[in-house]
Computed example of a mutant assay.
Amino acid sequence: MTGPARGPAAGEPDAPIRVVVADDQELVRSGFAMILDAQPDIDVVAEAGDGLAAVAAVREHRPDVLLLDIRMPVMDGIEAAGIVGAETGCRVLMLTTFDLDDYVYDALRAGASGFLLKDVRRDDLVNAVRVVAAGESLLAPSVTTRLIRAFTSRPAKRGAGAAVDALTARERETLLLIARGLSNAEIAEAMVVSEHTVKTHVSNLLAKLGLRDRVQAVIAAYESGLTAPGA
């Protein structure tokens, strides 16, 4: 279960982003931890060498972000991400040396909020943690391309269309534009509404579809047949 939302008292600085780093390679894990812990707004609260230990660390330390290798011993990253997503409000940022379609798809279905390759630049890694901690979603460009391609060979998911049909016309339009990769500001311009209105549509459609974030919204749009690669 998630704990109470953390927030600074009036006049106090924002609390640092709490991070758990999980990777079975010690040098990689330590390297990522050092990069992140050197940031004034990020605090690495624990490290883990396998998926089971990562889940235990999240349960104990209640971090904001779990940086998780997708290939882990004892329990793989996909299974660990699913448990963390089901039990907590922790955001999961997946790391891997592989950008294969099935890994990307399964990790995002498990609730990952971001997906980066391990050769990510230092600044991009730090930015990714900040982005997902703020409630947004993040994918490397190569991963996004492969994810979209994955849907060309996957039929629309049974029942997904009915869920999307429950959305209002404006919510469906918003979902379609999210699936096309538009930001809230770009969606607002396309729909000729305020950005605040777009945020309301996004929150409503996520709640109605039972989704965690925009990444899962993109998946829902494709699974329901609302849009298709190349549309």
Score class of each variant (00 low, 15 high):
M1W: 02
T2A: 15
A5C: 09
P8T: 11
A9I: 03
G11D: 06
E12H: 03
I17S: 08
R18L: 13
R18W: 05
D23E: 09
D23Q: 02
L27D: 10
R29V: 08
R29I: 02
R29F: 01
S30N: 09
M34C: 00
D41Y: 07
I42A: 14
I42N: 07
D43Q: 14
V44G: 10
V44A: 09
V45M: 12
A46T: 12
E47D: 08
G49I: 01
L52T: 00
A53K: 04
A53G: 06
A57N: 02
R59C: 09
R59V: 05
H61R: 15
H61E: 09
H61G: 05
V65Y: 06
L67E: 03
L67C: 14
L67D: 01
M72I: 02
M72H: 05
D76R: 02
G77H: 01
A81E: 00
G82Q: 03
A86P: 01
T88W: 07
G89S: 12
R91I: 08
V92Q: 07
L93Q: 02
M94C: 02
L95D: 04
T96M: 10
T97L: 13
F98L: 12
L100K: 14
L100F: 09
D101T: 15
D101Y: 01
D102R: 15
D102L: 14
D102W: 06
V104L: 14
D106T: 07
A107C: 12
A107W: 04
L108N: 12
A110C: 06
A112H: 05
F115S: 04
L116Q: 05
L117G: 14
L125F: 06
V126W: 04
N127R: 12
V129Y: 06
R130F: 06
V132M: 10
A133R: 06
A133W: 02
A134N: 11
G135T: 10
L138R: 13
L139F: 10
P141Y: 07
V143A: 07
T144P: 00
R146H: 10
R149T: 15
F151A: 10
T152S: 11
R154D: 05
R154A: 12
A156D: 10
G159R: 06
A162D: 15
A163F: 01
V164N: 12
A166F: 05
A166H: 12
L167N: 13
T168A: 15
E173T: 07
L176E: 01
L176Q: 09
I178V: 15
I178P: 10
A179K: 07
R180T: 02
N184G: 03
E186M: 02
A188H: 01
V192C: 01
V198A: 02
T200I: 11
L205Y: 12
L211T: 10
R212N: 11
D213G: 15
R214K: 13
R214I: 04
R214D: 01
V215S: 09
Q216R: 10
A217T: 05
I219N: 08
T227Q: 00
T227P: 07
A228K: 11
P229R: 04
G230I: 07
